[in-house]
């Protein structure tokens, strides 16, 4: 992989026409919509996008309208990655037979957390094992928001959803969030990374790096959902920033298994006093509202402890692979 650094300036990004067009029917303040806009700013040439069912598939393609200004294929929940491998294989054979121009075409597979963590995991694992050249982007809004805010294996502990409602029986979801990027890294990926839209330059650079890799790449993008998180629409980007600052969602990248923290998280690792308590992130989100009642305050402490442990583990992993 080339080590070239890309300089995406705000001016360049704005000057490049949107490939995810306005007029899509996402809620006001939708995090994933910003993520999609920014992802497509990183494309470098002919690109085909395939997308699993999910919020962003629905809002972008309500018949007869489409918000996609590039070739886009909708596929079922299970098989975004399988579809991407099919596209890549078809391009290869069509190029060989001389049916299309001999040029590289980037393939991006997009899926939400349902289409990645739960339903699409087998297709993704298979496609990565076969080594197809595609970039899989997961936009993680921590639940099945499109169908009515059900829990997914990405929903964090303590969050109230319609299938893990906080009340007298349970204080929100009881299970931990699945470490998906670790699972993908175990496939010996050349490139895997996590990103949030608030740090847009970091996100766009990571998308471009993932596209440049010859082989599968995985990108985990944190995308707050004001509807499902029951938060203020205007605070969407603030939460994607607070998640990094409180180390709930540290951003890092792994090139050939070597992990390194990206700048915003690195700043916190070098200056631990800048690390915010998870309370700052949990507050204001309606899905965590019940945690601030007297009988549930111990859960906030538990979340803080688990977050600290995960952060320490990540720091160790970063130093052990980069001595």
């Amino acid at each position: 992989m080339s080590t070239q650094e890309w300089k995406f300036t705000a001016k360049d990004i704005i000057a490049k026409p949107d490939l995810f067009l306005p007029g899509h029917r996402a809620c006001a303040g939708c995090g994933p919509a910003t993520v999609l806009r920014l992802i497509l700013k990183a494309t470098r040439g002919p690109t085909i996008v395939t997308q699993a069912t999910g919020c962003m598939e629905i809002v972008g393609s309500i018949y007869p309208y489409t918000s996609w200004a590039l070739p886009w294929i909708h596929t079922a929940f299970e098989n975004a990655a399988a579809n991407a491998s099919g596209i890549e294989a078809a391009l290869k054979i069509m190029r060989k037979k001389g049916k299309i121009k001999d040029e590289h075409v980037d393939v991006i597979a997009l899926a939400g957390d349902g289409g990645t963590y739960d339903i699409g995991l087998q297709a993704l694992s298979g496609a990565v094992e076969r080594g197809h050249d595609f970039l899989f982007i997961l936009y993680d809004n921590e639940g099945y928001m499109n169908t009515g805010i059900q829990r997914s294996s990405s929903t964090p502990i303590g969050a109230s959803t319609t299938t893990s409602p906080a009340g007298t029986a349970i204080p929100g979801k009881l299970e931990k969030k699945k470490p998906i990027t670790e699972i993908m890294l175990a496939h010996d990926l050349e490139y895997a990374a996590t990103a949030t839209p608030y740090y847009w330059k970091d996100l766009i650079t990571k998308v471009r790096k993932g596209l440049e890799v010859k082989g599968p790449a995985f990108l985990h993008v944190f995308a707050p959902c004001p509807r499902g998180w029951r938060s203020e629409p205007s605070k969407t980007m603030e939460y994607s920033k607070l998640a990094v600052e409180s180390c709930v969602f540290p951003i890092w990248e792994a090139i050939n298994g070597k992990r390194q923290l990206s700048t915003p998280s690195k700043v916190i690792s070098l200056a631990p006093q800048k690390k915010k308590p998870v309370k700052a992130y949990l507050e204001g989100q309606g899905r965590f509202r019940h945690l601030f009642t007297p009988k549930n305050t111990h859960i906030v402490d538990e979340i803080q402890q688990a977050t600290d442990e995960r952060w320490q583990k990540l720091l160790q992993q970063c130093t052990s692979t980069n001595p």
Binding site: L21, P22, G23, H24, R25, G60, S61, I62, Y63, P64, Y65, T66, S67, A69
Partner: peptide, 11 residues
Amino acid sequence: VPSKSSVSFLT
């Protein structure tokens, strides 16, 4: 095949 651009759908 959705054929119209969503730019004509004003939100």
